[in-house]
């Protein structure tokens, strides 16, 4: 399976959580800190490198805050 990752632009994120429920591996969570706008942004928690770059989280995001990368794609 293609290995991927996501980059969440924390300052675009409004902390709506829509991205957190669609990850097949439950890798996207809400952070414990606040961004510049005062929202708790979502964050990728992927210590084992499970992200495949499937883009589902990004497709849920209303704010285009998530860029998805795939290796060798």
């Amino acid at each position: 399976m293609a290995r991927g990752t996501i980059l969440i632009d924390e300052d675009r994120c409004k902390g709506c959580e829509l991205c957190t429920t669609v990850c097949p591996f439950d890798l996207v969570h809400i952070a414990n800190h606040f961004n510049a706008k005062g929202y708790r942004p979502s964050t990728l928690v992927d210590p084992q490198g499970k992200c495949t770059g499937c883009t589902l989280c990004a497709r849920m995001c209303p704010d285009v805050a998530i860029i998805v990368y795939r290796e060798g794609a």
Binding site: G4, V64, V68, E71
Partner: peptide, 10 residues
């Protein structure tokens, strides 16, 4: 390995 953005701002 090279990585490539597959989803970004249109």
């Amino acid at each position: 390995m090279e990585r490539k953005a597959v989803f970004a701002n249109p």
